[in-house]
Design a protein around this nucleic acid. Structure first.
Lengths: 337, 337
DNA sequence: TTGTAAGCGTTATCAA
DNA sequence: TTGATAACGCTTACAA
């Protein structure tokens, strides 16, 4: 903890024998300063161990150089899902080489108040919203306060003007998974869905349905899960009870796929010999333990990266290529299908 | 995005027919303002939808009302470990009711530069460091810049002055787990350690050793893991090869315990009938899928909470009870032992 | 109880 | 290329 007050621009100016303005120019890399002066100033900066004061800078330039990361109220889920962690990872990676910093903002029970106050205070230049749930209406409002990029399509809600967002191709991923299962010769294919109040779950189910229909297969073996391992195990039991002859299952995320695997093992089914299993996410859960899951990779970190990238464009008044960006999903073949 | 400039204190003052100072007092809840005036000011604030400018406030008060969360360079590990997620959760929960905000700072490859610059710029009032690895020396330096609280004992490194930190009782937890196994009648007890460059792994091994020695049991069945599921599975195989008659195993974290369970299943051992298994962490992995793990709970979120709490004390010039705080660990009995 | 006025450390606008 | 000199929006003695 520093005891003496930190050096100011003024002190550096005095030490270098120039004006404050000049030091400011040097600090900000202005091209029109004589090399000689630049040198003198830099020496003084180093000698005094000078670091610009952020608040003063923000106040004068009206730029906070900070971005808010808004997290849904449902804290528990956010932290327990490796998917979110990867998104955050991607965001921080994109921001790393920039001067922007990330402010973690867990939208409280009263987002209207604290969050709005925060964003309104000029504390941040923009916001990133990571939320899967439909119904986080409050968050939508925020995009009227500062430039905002959403993770996941927020336009499924009504009354929305154009919003910026990045999403992954959930439908396409589910299609690939299902087609793969069919290619494998499976015909009695079921699916375990995610929590249906999240658009990702709905889209994945849609993809599965489309391919099943195309192939003229029975698409009635649907059981609803909740994106947790236990939920996946329970849904799998339900599926097995209804269709004991099932030879494949597309599970809407890896966590549930793990649970499904356990149910299958307990029921004496060999994977993938008897029943092939494909998960979704290619998260940590897919490869942390054997058997390694065949799954649909949605590059969550890329999503975070793309979100930050889009926001950066917005903040630089550089218009992003487009308001939305859909990232591809790819099937990753491993041991379960 | 607002197009018109946001209202200032000055504008509120004008609207309410009082001075700037008075508005400031009202905003900051000063007691010596007549109720009548308070009312008028608040009305004006609401009417203008006024939100104080953070930068101006910070500049004038020399308080950033922000806390940095420093994350180790090894990004991947941080994000894939549910333990860290819980710590962050605890931190945000403690900070929720305060006016402090959290700044996520992933210490880059060159922490000396960007991080120091950041902390030095008066951007934050204090810092929280979450790191398990020994050797993050650079981070230690930071505690000379701003008040800092560490998660995990940083004093194992040399040349350290007094530091503030919160840790969990790893030794005690391992002891409880091992004693439980003995109480169960198990005598041929092995252990799978974590990555030995982390002090938590070392402490857990120590706890196991102590109890084994006390009980006069053979403590040679030690296999080293790396805190991942695959590592745990491999270590378990090694243990089984060396000691086929093993009747219990203490695994240094839940992720590895999951892997160990798979190895045991493949080897035809029933859990807990043939081999009892106790994990560590009580993380997400312990209960996400069956069987639910008997494990040692280290309340990671409490750790985050305690870290933030200690820092808050520091920032309020309230001296914390003590410079260090060791949180208890408790054995959670479930299905595997 | 309220107001005046002097900062807080930068950036930005002019001149020079 | 450099230097005065205003802002920027708020807090905080110090007066009244």
């Amino acid at each position: 903890m520093t005891s003496t007050a930190p050096p100011t621009l003024e002190m550096v100016a005095a030490a270098a024998g120039v004006s404050r303005a000049t030091v400011s120019r040097v600090v900000n890399g202005s091209p029109k300063v004589s090399p000689h002066v630049v040198d003198a100033v830099n020496k003084a900066i180093v000698r005094l161990n000078y670091v610009p004061n952020r608040a003063a800078r923000t106040l004068a330039s009206r730029q906070a150089m900070a971005i808010a990361l808004l997290i849904p109220e449902d804290i528990g889920r956010f932290y327990s899902d490796p998917y979110f962690a990867s998104v955050v990872k991607g965001i921080t990676q994109r921001l790393e080489p920039t001067d922007y910093v990330l402010n973690l903002l867990v939208s409280s029970s009263d987002p209207r108040h604290k969050t709005r106050r925060y964003l309104g205070g000029g504390t941040v230049d923009g916001a990133l919203v990571v939320s899967h749930h439909a119904g986080d209406r409050d968050l939508i409002v925020l995009s009227d306060i500062v430039p905002t990029v959403f993770g996941g399509d927020p336009t499924t809600m009504l009354g929305l003007r154009e919003r910026y967002y990045v999403d992954v191709d959930n439908v396409g991923g589910a299609q690939q998974a299902t087609r793969h299962l069919i290619r494998l010769g499976r015909r009695r294919i079921g699916t375990v869905t995610g929590a249906m109040d999240m658009h990702a779950a709905a889209h994945r189910l849609t993809g599965w349905r489309q391919v099943m229909a195309e192939a003229g297969l029975d698409d009635s073996a649907v059981a609803h899960g909740d994106f947790t391992g236990y939920g996946g195990a329970a849904a799998m039991r339900e599926l097995l009870a209804r269709r004991p002859d099932l030879d494949a299952v597309f599970v809407a995320n890896d966590l549930m796929a793990r649970g499904a695997l356990i149910t299958l093992g307990a029921a004496g089914r060999r994977v993938p010999t008897d029943v092939a299993v494909v998960g979704f996410d290619d998260s940590f859960a897919a490869t942390n333990e054997p058997p390694a899951l065949t799954t649909v990779r949605q590059a969550a970190d890329e999503m975070g990266w793309a979100m930050a990238d889009m926001l950066l464009d917005l903040l630089a008044d550089r218009n992003p290529q487009s308001r939305t960006r859909i990232l591809p999903t790819t099937l990753v073949l491993r041991e379960t299908a």
